[in-house]
Amino acid sequence: MTALKPGDTFPSDVVFQYVPWTEDKEDMTACGIPVAYNASKEWADKKVVLFSVPGAFTPTCTVNHLPGYIKNLPNLREKGVDIVAVVAFNDPFVMSAFGKANHVRGNDILFLSDPDSKFSKSMGWADPNSGRTGRYAIVIDHGKIKYAQIETEKGVVKLSSADAVLANL
């Protein structure tokens, strides 16, 4: 697969890993059981914003990228977005803790793991040196790509920001 672009169909074989949020496991030190999340199936009939960070708990991701999506959740919902998800190469336990550390409850934002950056690498959107997922944003509307952009400058959040996505919904 090459990089996704507007008009493309979202691939039919995208599976991430994640730890489902539950109230009894909302404490940072509580661990749930990772499960497979079949994004292709779950998102087939929904409007989805998927954004990727190179790593949970890294400065740009934690200070500049994720907070914009948390702040803009109501605006994204007003634009008809059913699911907001963040993905990184980190394992599902780290991604779960990343959500908890940022006080995201329930399924407001899904914190997904792209093991070995498989999805990101398939599009050429993983860092060739570190193997981490790139910093990007994709809007999927009922299986069709409406927006797909990757940041080309390290530490920059412009094309993949919540504001950029909102402007393109």
Rank of each mutant, 00 (worst) to 15 (best):
I150A: 12
F57E: 05
L73T: 06
A36C: 07
V87A: 08
K41Q: 13
V94N: 14
N102F: 04
P54V: 00
P6H: 10
A3M: 14
C31E: 15
G99L: 03
Q17V: 05
N90I: 01
V165E: 03
G106N: 04
S96G: 14
S120N: 14
H65Y: 03
K144T: 10
K46R: 14
G106S: 03
D91P: 05
L76A: 02
A164F: 05
K158M: 07
D24F: 07
D141N: 15
V15D: 08
Y136G: 00
K100A: 04
K71N: 13
P20V: 00
D127V: 10
S40N: 10
T152D: 12
A164V: 03
L169T: 02
E26P: 06
L50H: 00
A148L: 10
F119E: 02
T152N: 14
V86A: 05
W21A: 04
K71S: 08
K121M: 11
D27Q: 15
A39L: 03
L110A: 05
E78T: 13
G106D: 02
T29R: 13
Y18M: 04
C61S: 13
Q149F: 05
P11S: 02
G143D: 00
V81D: 09
P54R: 01
K46V: 11
M95C: 07
D141S: 04
F16D: 00
A3T: 11
I150Q: 14
